[in-house]
């Protein structure tokens, strides 16, 4: 049994020594290999400790057990993913972020809305999600629509604030220039204000990716059909099937990172001109 503990510690020491050496190199693959090796070490030490000390799988299942559950339950996990992420989180994200940007444009055009709407948005943002979620589930039913509604509530305000800030980001001189061209407000928006706002809008979009996933998962705790990542986590905890809970967490981590990465990639392409992206 102790062989697992010592073996994993030995691997840790070896990997550490290797990483120290590798980090001195400047080859491009090192940038990916060093963190990969670190992640592998965490998993192997985890596995070794759980096996070596015989940790109760309810407290902490071994990575191998989680992997086995993951592979064995792929159809279930996929169904949960579609339900929670593609239906709930993604549609709520698109609706909430679009609404945030459109509202920001309206707020930007009208001082009346700026004074009236921003405080209300602030107020809504201050509402606790665990309080709002059951109410929205009551209103919109157990299906993914109520999860999308929770996500909309969560992402709307951060998106609004960032977009309002962004629409103010163009310089006075650039706006004066549009004025000397006798540009219409619409032209000013399309050709100056929106492009100048893009770095801020993407900031909001990136923050909202994680909010959307959290919102959709948490909302399922308050009622959902018999699928969905949040539903699965809450029921499998009840059945002490922690390996399944961990498998869902792995899915959430992968999808969340991929979602964030996709938005960050779009940012690189669209705001290539911004000093932070020129590299």
């Amino acid at each position: 049994m102790m062989a697992w503990v010592f073996g994993s510690l030995l691997f840790w020491a070896a990997a550490w020594a290797l990483n120290v050496r590798l980090s001195r190199l400047s080859a491009p693959w090192v940038r990916f290999f060093v963190p990969a090796l670190f992640g592998m070490t965490v998993i192997i030490v985890w596995e070794g400790m759980v096996r070596g000390f015989g940790v109760n799988p309810v407290l902490l299942p071994a990575p191998s057990a989680i992997a086995a559950t993951f592979v064995g339950e792929i159809p279930t996990l996929w169904g949960d993913l579609v339900q929670t992420f593609f239906k709930g989180a993604l549609s709520g994200y698109v609706i909430g972020c679009t609404a945030g940007v459109l509202t920001a444009i309206a707020v930007d055009r009208s001082p009346f809305l700026q004074r009236g709407l921003l405080p209300v948005g602030n107020f809504v943002a201050a509402l606790p999600i665990v309080g709002m979620a059951p109410i929205l589930v009551m209103w919109f039913g157990f299906g993914w629509q109520s999860k999308a509604a929770v996500v909309v509530v969560m992402v709307f305000f951060p998106m609004l604030v960032n977009a309002v800030e962004g629409l103010r980001a163009s310089e006075t001189m650039q706006r004066d220039l549009m004025h000397t061209y006798a540009a219409t407000p619409g032209q000013g928006l399309r050709k100056l204000r929106l492009p100048a706002a893009m770095p801020f809008i993407f900031n909001g979009l990136k923050i909202c990716t994680t909010l959307a996933l959290i919102g959709a998962i948490v909302a399922e705790f308050f009622g959902s059909p018999i699928k969905g990542m949040g539903f699965r986590i809450s029921t499998e905890v009840g059945r002490l099937a922690l390996d399944m809970v961990w498998a869902e967490i792995v899915v959430a981590a992968i999808v969340g990172s991929a979602f964030y990465g996709a938005v960050a990639l779009a940012e690189r392409v669209i705001t290539f001109w911004h000093p932070s992206q020129r590299g």
Partner: peptide, 18 residues
């Protein structure tokens, strides 16, 4: 201004970076 009678060159170039 509305009849676009003049071009204005500012202190800084003010080109749009995108």
């Amino acid at each position: 201004r509305r009849s676009r009678a003049y071009g204005y060159v500012f202190q800084a170039a003010g080109l749009y970076p995108w």
